[in-house]
Every structure is written in C-alpha cells, then in structure tokens.
Nucleic acid binder design. Structure first.
Lengths: 202, 202
DNA sequence: GACGGAGTGGACAGATCTGTCTACAGGCGG
DNA sequence: CCGCCTGTAGACAGATCTGTCCACTCCGTC
C-alpha cells in the first residue's frame, strides 16, 4: 500500500480534491485531532472560505476522509489478495488459502509510512464524540472480512473463518504500529494464526 | 474489569493519587488529547500549581497514567485468567487451554464503560508525537503475551502460540470498540480462533 | 455586458490549550 | 520559632483551535 500520493497536491485537481487529498495525508500521518484546519488549508493551497464552501465542518471532512480512505484501502487490499493468490499453485490454494492475507499485510506494514489502520485510529481518537466514525469503521471492517472470505471455498463457515482471520489481521496491524520489531513478530504470529485456522477448517 | 474507580476521588489519598486516578478515568473514558489539564485538575480537586508540582508536564502525567494502567489491567487480567482456569476440569485444561482468555475478555468487553485498550488508543492518539507511548505499549503487550503463555504447557512453542493468540485478543478489542454488535461477533470469532490454535498445536 | 459560481487574502471572534506566575496559609521537624 | 513542604486561589501569557465575515477577483455562460 503506497501511503503517499502527491508530489504536488496544490497543482492538480479541483479545490475539493486537493483538500481531500491533503486531509488524507495529514489525518493519516499525524492524526485527526492533531491536524488543525488552518494547517490543512495552508498545505492544500486553498483559503478558509473555499474550505468551508466544500465542507460544512471539520467533522464533514473527517467523514469524507474516512469514505475516501475506505475506497482507497479496500481496492488496494482486494488487488493485493488477488495478486498473491495468483502466484499460488493449485495445491497451495487448497492447503494455505489464507496465505495471500499474510503477504498482502506484509507489503503494507513494511511500508515506511505505515501508521496503522486509519479506522482503528479514528475510533480511538474520536469514536467517543463522533459516532459516524464508529459506523463507518464497522462497515469498513465488514468489507475486509468479505474480501478475506472470498479466498475461501464458499462453504457454510467461510464467513466465520474469515471473521476469525480478520481478528488476527487487526491484531497484527495494531501490534506493528508500536515499532518495527513488533511488526516482524506480528507478521510471524499472523502467519501461524492463519495457517492454524486453515488447517483446522479442513 | 471494573473500569470505574471512584466514587469520590477528591476525598481520598494524596493530591498526587487523586490526580492520577482522575487522569486514569478521563484519559481512558474520553481520550488523552480530549482531556485538557484544566478540566482534569478541576475534577481532581487540586490547583494548577499542585498539579505541576507533581508532574512536570502533561506528557509526564500521560507516562504515569500508562504505567498505572498497565499495572491495573495486567493484574486484573492475570487474576481473571487464573479464576477461569480454576473452573476448568483437567481434561478441559488440556483440550481448551486458551478458553480462559476468551472468558476473561468477555468480562471486560461487556463492561458498559469499556472503551478499548488504553495502550492501543494511546498509540493511535499520540504515538507519533510521544514515542514513550509506543515503548510502554509494546512492553505492556509483551506482558500480556507472557500471561497468555502461562496457560500453556511450557513447550518450545508456547510463546509463539501465545503471540498468535494475543493477535486475536487485540483484534477482538478493537473490533468490540466499534459497537456492541461488533463486540458479540468479535467474541465469537475469538473463541473459534483460540480453539483452532489450541487444536492445531497438539 | 451582466450575472453567478468559485476562488483569494486576511481580519476577527470566542473558546480552549499548556504552562508560569504571584501571593498566601497551614503543618511539621529541627 | 524558623524554614520547608504542600497546598489554595486565580490571573496571565501565548499559542492554537473551529468557524464567520468582508471586500475583491476571475471566468465562463447566457
């Protein structure tokens, strides 16, 4: 997952797009509460009036950011799963159907600008005072479960299995966030966890 | 895990203790960034001078809060694991050694004042600008792994197994934070995950 | 050429943030 | 009885926060 977009947000697209791109960069990299609208509009190269013409409030922008991030991340995740799955042999697909999850996650967590899951972070930062963050995050995670389930033979328990795997994924994400040592051991543990789930489900 | 402490923080203990207790309540319930020192000292019933005599800065208080929380949570967790383990039969202890983890977590997540893991939240909120939060959280999570490993026969891979189980625990925590529906399905998925890990390790 | 939409630049309000300061009061050990 | 510690009460500084407002410009369309 390439976390950076630029190089020059102020030279491309409409004002609304520049604001949203800049918000994505700053909210993800430094946090939502830590990013004031003053700094945001300065970096986006717009004025306050323009900003408030496009977004009624900062909360409005946060909502748009989360939806934007959801689309961006989910499409990357699905693509990465498909890519790693396409590299598996037929027997691997049967014996280790969840291995692509581990490989996709390794890509993301090792990205130097990885800063955790934007949705988990948003819930921690503002879930208490901005309930929309909770519902958007819940449906984001649900879609992640669906993407994982698509790797599994569509048996009766594929969703339940994917839900268990998703817990491991979220655990690995938050663990990786505490440092690169944690990241390596989290990826290792995730591999073990996914293998165990796949073996147990046979 | 009973999240509330009070009832009357201003009537008991030294000023430092009252500040720390109040910080624990507010930081956990409403978030670290959302809690200003003004409100904190008002609720603790002390003055600003007293506050800054005991803590050089807000960051100093955050550090103390994390250490306090670590001790509180970890001792509860170990106690809960031991309690649920003591209710298992000998054969259950062999076939489902990680079941106490699920039961302990169910207790905590269902507490009405559950607001996620204070360490995951702290990393999301301030990990970028206050690196101590990262290292304290990393060692907190490491101690959680040790507590989980203590349930397992001390074989060669008990730590690796506990690390995998801990990923599921962290995943369940962040999932439960998005709402009570998520909480129920997270607990269910966690149970499956832990059972699968235990079965696979035999 | 008139009009409306989208933009600029910057002042401003009112709140809240962390942290410092002065001035004072009680208790306790040397 | 004299410092020292711990505490109170509250003003203050300086920064930063979200959001509003005014006066003006540019540009495409009718």
């Amino acid at each position: 997952m390439p976390e950076t977009i630029e190089p020059c947000p102020r030279c491309s697209g409409s004002a609304r797009e520049r604001i949203l791109q800049t918000a994505h960069d700053l909210f993800y990299r430094e946090g939502i509460r830590a990013t004031g609208v003053d700094r945001l509009i300065a970096q986006a190269g717009v004025t306050k009036v323009t900003f408030y013409r496009h977004f009624a409030s900062k909360n409005d922008l946060i909502r748009a950011f989360l939806i934007f991030r959801h689309e961006r991340w989910t499409s990357w995740f699905k693509e990465a799963l498909a890519r790693h799955r396409s590299r598996q042999s037929a027997s691997e697909r049967q014996s280790a159907p969840l291995a692509p999850v581990r490989h996709a996650l390794a890509e993301w967590l090792q990205d130097p600008s990885f800063r955790g899951c934007a949705f988990i972070n948003a819930v921690a930062e503002i879930g208490g005072v901005f309930p929309d963050a909770l519902s958007i995050s819940a449906s984001h995670k649900e879609e992640m479960v669906v993407a994982i389930a698509s790797l599994l033979p569509s048996g009766g328990n594929s969703m339940a299995l994917a839900r268990a795997a998703a817990l491991g994924v979220d655990g690995a994400i938050v663990r990786a966030q505490t440092g690169s040592d944690s990241m390596r051991s989290a990826l290792e543990a995730l591999g073990e966890l996914l293998a165990s789930l796949a073996a147990h489900s046979q």
